[in-house]
């Protein structure tokens, strides 16, 4: 008996820490989501799960607007980052002089914190003093502030996010390319295939697993973390034009102090991310099985 319990005994400190930092916040979030918790009015309390769900999912068009904004941003950034990352990976896959010298520069944006990235781009997009506004003025577009227009605020955010996270795609895809066996490429060359045919018919199909993993990982990450850059660049504005679910959860919890509504938004994100992770896990397990 003691022998059987011994591994559990040794594992227990780690398990306790893990439970306290993962399970407790989750249980507490469930508690918040099912009660009325308003920091500025502690008198309003009590079980109110159905009311809370109705408020967020039925009575607040804001939730669905934020969901749409999140999806638009996620699809836009992941698509662009994948396409650009693939092009850059293919570029760095070939041998050329100075490759090792310039490669680190392409990785630099990824090393910066999103707050710094947001601040840099906010200044670049500033309608009065920003470099972009200056360039637009040079081509005849006067008085334009990208982040002040609902139609272009999302474009500005996409540009900043793509600038920061394309290197992540580049790294994953380049690693995938370098891990491919050489013989199919050599055979294709012997058969007279051109570079585009080799890329389309040999490289891309062989890279499919790494591409799916990279896209899924980045999708999960973008969905989850579409907050810092937006908070700094537009704070969800103008109006609510760039308010994602993460920004909404923050605003409901820490600006409006509706902790229960913030918890529901955050938990809904958790459900979506869990589904994505399940898909990723299933895919990875499937690959191992194969």
């Amino acid at each position: 008996m003691l022998r059987r319990l011994r591994p559990l005994l040794f594992l227990s400190p780690t398990l306790l820490i893990l439970l306290s930092i993962t399970l407790f916040p989750l249980v507490y979030s469930l508690y918040l989501a099912s009660h009325t918790v308003i920091l500025t009015n502690p008198m309003l309390s009590g079980w109110s799960l159905t009311d809370n769900l109705r408020e967020v999912f039925i009575e607040s068009p804001e939730y669905w607007e934020s969901m749409l904004t999140t999806l638009i941003l996620v699809v836009a950034v992941v698509t662009l980052e994948f396409v650009l990352g693939l092009m850059l990976a293919y570029f760095f896959f070939s041998n050329f002089r100075g490759r090792n010298l310039i490669f680190p520069f392409f990785l630099m944006p990824m090393m910066l914190t999103p707050v710094v990235v947001g601040t840099i781009w906010r200044f670049l997009f500033n309608g009065e003093f920003g470099l972009i506004a200056g360039l637009l003025k040079a081509v005849g577009v006067e008085n334009y502030s990208i982040l002040n227009q609902p139609s272009t605020a999302l474009v500005g955010i996409v540009i900043a996010d793509v600038w920061q996270w394309t290197p992540f795609m580049l790294l994953l895809l380049l690693a995938g390319m370098r891990a491919l066996p050489r013989s199919p490429f050599e055979a294709a060359q012997v058969d007279g295939a051109n570079a585009f045919q080799i890329f389309r018919d040999i490289m891309l199909p062989m890279m499919k697993p790494i591409i799916i993993i990279a896209v899924l990982m980045r999708t999960i990450d973008a969905f989850n973390r579409m907050f810092d850059i937006i908070y700094i660049m537009t704070n969800g504005g103008p109006g609510r034009a760039s308010e994602t679910l993460a920004v909404m959860a923050f605003r409901q919890s820490f600006e409006y102090f509706f902790m229960h509504q913030g918890a529901i938004v955050a938990l809904s994100m958790l459900v979506i991310i869990t589904i994505m992770v399940k898909i990723l896990n299933r895919f990875i397990a499937g690959r191992k099985g194969a």
């Binding site: 500033n126 309608g127 506004a133 008085n143 502030s145 002040n148 504005g237």
Partner: peptide
Amino acid sequence: NKLTPPGSLDFELGEASAA
């Protein structure tokens, strides 16, 4: 009608004063 700087939807009192 652009009687105010284009980025002024981003201005608090400090930014307005700086402009």
